[in-house]
Amino acid sequence: MARRSAGAGSAARREAGAHRVPRRSAVEWFRRALASENIVLLLAFAFFAAALPFAPELASPDNLQSLFLSVLPLLAITLGQTIVLITGGIDLSLTSTMALSSVAGASIMTRESGPFAGSWAVPGGLCAMLLVGAAVGLLNGLGVTLLGMPPFIVTLATMMTVSGLAIWSTHSASIAGLPAAFVAIGSGTVGPIPAPVLVVIPLALAVHLLLSRTLIGQWMYAVGHSSRVALVSGVPVRRVTVAAYVAGGLCATVAAALYTARLETGMPTLGRELLLDVIGAAVVGGTSLFGGRGKVTGTLFGVVLFAVVARTLDLCGLQHYTIMMVKGSIILLAAALDLARRRVTGGF
């Protein structure tokens, strides 16, 4: 009897459930979409699709190619910020590191005499840029670990110092006349493939492998979750932190090389207004400002969202003030969706 009534009850539930199928599936679909790690990318596509009827040129091959290429340097520098954020730090000096790298490399590449003139100009300039990125990253890392000061303060100080150094060393003048071989890094192609793709995609893969497949990558997450627990567990917290800032500086250098090559100019003010985009794209892509969480794919999606929104709004014919308000709203929406996703998936 009991079995019979249980069977009858479940049949009734099935029947009732059959009536609710459409509602359940819609809710389930929404829940699944929300739970997806690709929610930021979905939002970017949704925004792009919604804007398409109003600006059909968005889908033109020229625009898509130009949009794709604009994502790459921003991705390079945002990867650097992602690494630092994962360890629980923040690097405000990344954009000024770009500026100093830009003028250091450009000044070497435009010298008419000396050891780096001629065929050594481009390798010499690139080495100088990497050296600047690594040195500033090292300075930040040592400042944070040895002085025990908050990363915000250390990197803020570095940002101001490095930015001042870039302007002072050039007397505010940008440096043009870069070698064609260097300019090709930003706008040339290797066969059918744009050169920046061959720079940034390997970088993104390398950072992905670093974070997901190496011990130091796991240590970075551990330091970001809790540096004390990591220290007790035997993680060399100081070295890991310093390594994160150096890696961030090197990523900034890669971005500097691409931006400088594209503009054909070394600029002491390069990327001065880019910092909020860099932090914003990383955070919107799911990297935590408090450390311990972040992925290369998330950062890529965050950067894509920023680039798509900016390009779409520019081509829509809106006024600048409206563009700023819409951009801010979309970023807030993306961050709120990410928050909701974490609650749905139990990410907290």
């Binding site: 130009s66 390069l270 990327g271 001065r272 520019d314 563009i323």
Partner: peptide, 20 residues
């Protein structure tokens, strides 16, 4: 389009205009 003092952003905006 307003580049907010960023030369690279301005380049991207001009490229967008050209694509359009």
């Amino acid at each position: 389009a307003v580049a907010d003092n960023d030369a690279n952003r301005q380049l991207e905006q001009v490229q967008g205009f050209i694509a359009r």
